Amino acid sequence: MSEPLLTLSGVHTHIGQYHILQGVELAVPRGSLTVLLGRNGAGKTTTLRTIMGLWQASAGSVTFDGRAIGAMSTPDIARAGIAYVPESMAVFSELTVRENLLLAARGGAPDGARLDWIFGFFPALKKFWNYPAGNLSGGQKQMVAIARAIVEPRKLLLIDEPTKGLAPAIIDSLIAAFRELKAGETTILLVEQNFNFVKNLGDNVCVMDDGRIVHAGAMADLVADEALQQRLLGLSLAAHQ
């Protein structure tokens, strides 16, 4: 078993007076898709933002690819090979789709073959290539945000609620894209509440509650155990099929 690509050990994060993460222990295996589940307010988004350096951990360590990144700036973390897709999508509304992707291409221009690969999953991006991103629908903006994160190969993708508000056809495209990314050895840490989506896609699952990881294991084991689903999440995945 190789070392995890990403490890959080005893991570605490405070936001103002609030103690959000309270000793998070998390390991993300290389080349896998790990799903982070939990109720609203459990600390999932804070975990992603702490990894990305947008919020600084007040204690503990974050290690990526054998390197401590907890004290690094967000741009340096991105340059190390991590991309982040926030729940808010955060596209540059006044810029075109093309300009949004250009900003994410560190070489100055996206690779043509890579763009064709992205267009295969999200053909609407090619159609609206020269449109201001702010004029797109919510689902199309989500496509821009994800395309921006994968316009260049990354070692790790942090993705927060990618299917929120998306049509089923677009979700199918996301599943195909994530599977190809995994096959290409991209590691993914995904926060998601669409259980039918993640049960077919996730390799591993971690469940958060009150700022801690309370369960970690194989996704297949959680899917097969309705009593465990009920105990950890207060629901059965079967209800979401």
Rank of each mutant, 00 (worst) to 15 (best):
S137G: 02
G60A: 05
V214W: 03
I170H: 04
V24W: 00
L222I: 07
E152C: 14
I150Y: 02
R212H: 02
L189D: 11
A27V: 02
G38P: 12
E87D: 15
A216C: 07
H240G: 02
L33N: 03
D76S: 13
R231H: 07
I150R: 11
R98M: 09
D76M: 10
F128V: 02
H14V: 03
L103V: 14
Q229T: 04
G66D: 12
L156F: 03
A167E: 07
G23V: 08
A42E: 08
R67I: 14
S2A: 13
P75H: 07
A227T: 12
I188H: 00
I77D: 06
A68M: 03
L232N: 12
M143K: 11
R67W: 04
P132Q: 12
A167L: 06
D111I: 01
V214Q: 02
A109V: 14
C206Y: 12
P4A: 09
R30D: 12
M89G: 03
I51H: 01
D111H: 03
T50G: 08
S32F: 14
G43S: 11
Y84K: 12
V35N: 13
L201F: 03
D203C: 13
R49D: 06
L156G: 03
G107F: 04
A238C: 01
L174M: 14
K127W: 02
L103N: 08
H12M: 04
H240L: 13
L156D: 15
W117F: 05
Q241W: 10
D203Q: 11
A27N: 06
D160Q: 09
K199C: 03
R79I: 01
T187I: 00
A90N: 15
G211K: 12
T34N: 00
V24T: 06
L181Q: 03
T34L: 11
L233A: 01
Q230T: 05
I170Y: 10
E226C: 00
W129E: 08
R179I: 00
V144Y: 14
R114C: 01
P110L: 11
A90I: 04
A183D: 08
S32V: 01
P132M: 08
S61A: 09
G31W: 07
R106C: 06
A78G: 09
M89R: 13
P75I: 01
A177M: 15
Y131E: 14
A57L: 04
L158A: 08
P29V: 04
D172M: 11
L190M: 14
P110Y: 04
S2Y: 02
A238L: 07
K141I: 03
A83M: 06
D116N: 05
Q193T: 09
G43V: 06
A83N: 05
T186Q: 12
L33P: 09
D76G: 01
L95D: 14
K141Q: 14
V85S: 15
P86I: 07
A169P: 00
E226W: 01
A71S: 13
H240C: 08
M208D: 14
R106W: 07
M89A: 14
R212K: 15
P4S: 11
G38D: 10
T47M: 00
D225C: 04
